[in-house]
Amino acid sequence: MAKARLVGDRTNKVMVQAMERRSTDVRGRVFQISLLVTLLVSLFILAVLIVDVVMDGWGILTGRPGGFLGGTMRSLSDDPKLGVHQALVGTFWIAVFVAVLAFPIGIGAAIWLEEYAPKNRFTRFIELNIRNLAGVPSIVYGLLGLFLFVNHLEGVTGGKSIASAGITLAILVLPIVVITAQEAIRAVPQGLKEGAYGVGATKWTMIRSQVLPYAAPGILTGTLLSMSRGIGEAAPLLLVGAVSGRLGRDSGFFDFGDINADAFMAMPVIIVEWVQNSGRDPGFAEAAAAAIVVLLVFVILMNATAIFLRNHFENKRG
């Protein structure tokens, strides 16, 4: 049975040639490789950064890890009592403020926007407003904190206190909490909600029993990301008055009385402080690197957990 020819001889020859030729798409290869290179450069930078910091801080971290975590701010870098304890306490309290203020308010706002808000101009305004807040530079939040919490509300916050810093950072991460929680809630399948209504649930019962459990991993991812942002932020803290120089007091983690005591320290700020000190005393660069490693351990752990959680649930739900 002779095959019917679709095209003429000439065309047939060209097509056969085109299909049989081992195609070497040089431009395509070069393009792909250069793309890969750009990506690898970014990863290489990350690797250099981590290796550089860990190498600089290695001496302190392996030499006297306990002393470094339990020590305080000192004038000289070779002082055996030099350490980050005050900064850890400050950062711990900032994290508490973020968790207690930003999480409930942010998640509440996200629930309202996704489930209750009427589709009108005002709702769109609120959403635009939240997106804009997320893009406001962190130092502007520092100005807000300086103006409002340090100067105008000194009677409540104690001025340049951990309370002022904590509230400022809670405000700073609030829009991130709202936006990530909104995305998580938006992903809840309509069918789940309708099922709940079908068995007579009220709106809140439906949200509580269907929406929140389904969105929980997504919301948790968002809160972890915003927490890691919060504990790594330095600029607003410099404005609301983290001390430079000496902090005489070394409170324990649960000294509630010191929350609004004047002056405090936090992990990102102690790094800045020590980097600046390294101009007159080069040993402080190592202390700063060691403090960075301590901070990075927390931040990367939180981020990695968040990313893992998100990917895990994304895959599970297809």
Binding site: G158, G248, D255, F256, G257, D258
Partner: peptide, 23 residues
């Protein structure tokens, strides 16, 4: 937790000057 923290903050600033070793 939020409310308690505010309460604590308010309470702590009431006797600001005589607690905390650094005062």
């Amino acid at each position: 937790g939020l409310i308690t923290t505010f309460a604590l903050v308010a309470a702590a600033c009431g006797n600001d000057d005589d607690d905390g070793a650094a005062a």
